[in-house]
Design a protein around this nucleic acid. Structure first.
Lengths: 210, 210
DNA sequence: CTGGATATTAGGGTTTCTACTTATTTGGAT
DNA sequence: ATCCAAATAAGTAGAAACCCTAATATCCAG
């Protein structure tokens, strides 16, 4: 289920919106337009891949304000390309530092626009793939019981079963049972696979205090 | 050997340089100044922590040109804070996309400047720590013979010794010997440690966010 | 030529992990 | 109260890994 990406155009200038839509659709990309930032917020689907072409200056919620809001809610960070008619360097720098992928000043070349959109869509794609992997690892992790998590941490920390059993005050046999259960639930057949799964998916690591 | 960071000021405007130096030194930071980008290139030490305050427009090599050059040679990417007297949005966006940590337009508040410098120095510090760990791992890795590297890869891939021996067409006993040698040379006592060492140090990238 | 590093193999013993089965207890959820 | 998942634990057997010593062959450098 690889959804076709959508280029969201958020701009209050009707003529600009139509012009942008024409250019973007001319290369076969889907476009959805909003004349107010709030409209976008109300209707967008976090699971839909794509990117945002966002006007800086709009009545109501401004482009940068929308960016801040999207960053705050966190879920599904669509890449944002800002579009501005006036040269405001501090603003441009601020939104770039806040994670925007580009900041275009009018008038701009169609080629520049499309290039920027393509890059944003590529970024979104890799982000989503990463998130996907992560979600799957999290889902498996959620299946583990409290004890199993403790044992998992011991394994990843490189501790032997007997060490884990001593630390948790349970028998070696019990640790072995939990260990087998962990391997099965996490869907791996070797310790290195388990370690990789845990490390590359930002699952919590054992904090070895000393 | 934690060297004191140095704020490099690269600007052809003598008055500006003195003003910046005064502010930066007033909070106890060391400053070195250059009136030409080439001077900086000729004299800077990649091992010296710090950051660069870089004027955009200079006779000879411009600020962005220096940034490009530093990115090309790659080694020791000092965080760069650009300083500009004129509002050129496309330029600001370009250098930010190229990795600059900030872009200040004159006139700017001392507080803003110092805040930006502190952030750049923090970024540099974490980058260097990461590079340090990486270099140590690389050094250990370099000690391994060809065969040992092959066995290491097998281990990290989660293969059993007998599988590795079959793939390399050598006896199980030989694999065991190489395996022990690998663990010793890499300075680890368990497979999970080994996997972590390899995974977290195989590919390094400079950190750029806060 | 010789010493050192590397690669290869082996024996033998110890430790650890895995697989399979069985069984008791306990704390929630229905 | 009953049922179930989780935690606990034991046994047995075999596979795999670890540890130590030792031997042979090759190649390179001093």
């Amino acid at each position: 289920m690889t959804m076709e990406p959508i280029v969201y155009v958020v701009d209050d200038d009707q003529a600009m919106v139509e012009s942008l839509s024409w250019v973007i659709e001319s290369v076969g990309l889907k476009v959805k337009t909003y004349i107010r930032a709030q409209d976008f917020l109300d209707h967008y689907d976090p699971h839909q891949p794509g990117c945002i072409l966002l006007d800086v200056r709009m009545p109501g919620m401004s482009g940068p304000e929308l960016q801040t809001k999207l960053n705050e809610i966190g879920a599904s960070t669509l890449p944002i390309i800002f579009i501005s008619g006036h040269g405001d360097v501090p603003l441009a720098v601020r939104v770039m530092k806040a994670g925007a992928t580009d900041f275009l000043t009018k008038p701009f070349n169609d080629q520049v626009l499309l290039e920027s959109i393509n890059k944003a869509l590529r970024v979104d794609k890799t982000n989503r793939e990463k998130q996907q992997e992560n979600a799957q690892a999290e889902a498996k992790f959620a299946l583990l019981s409290h004890r199993e998590v403790q044992v998992l941490q011991g394994i990843v920390a490189g501790k032997q079963n007997k060490v884990i059993s001593a630390e948790l005050n349970i028998s070696l046999k019990t640790v072995e049972a939990h260990r087998a259960s962990v391997m099965k639930k996490m869907g791996v057949k070797s310790v290195p696979e388990l370690v990789k799964l845990v490390l590359t998916n930002s699952v919590q690591e054992p904090v070895s205090e000393e």
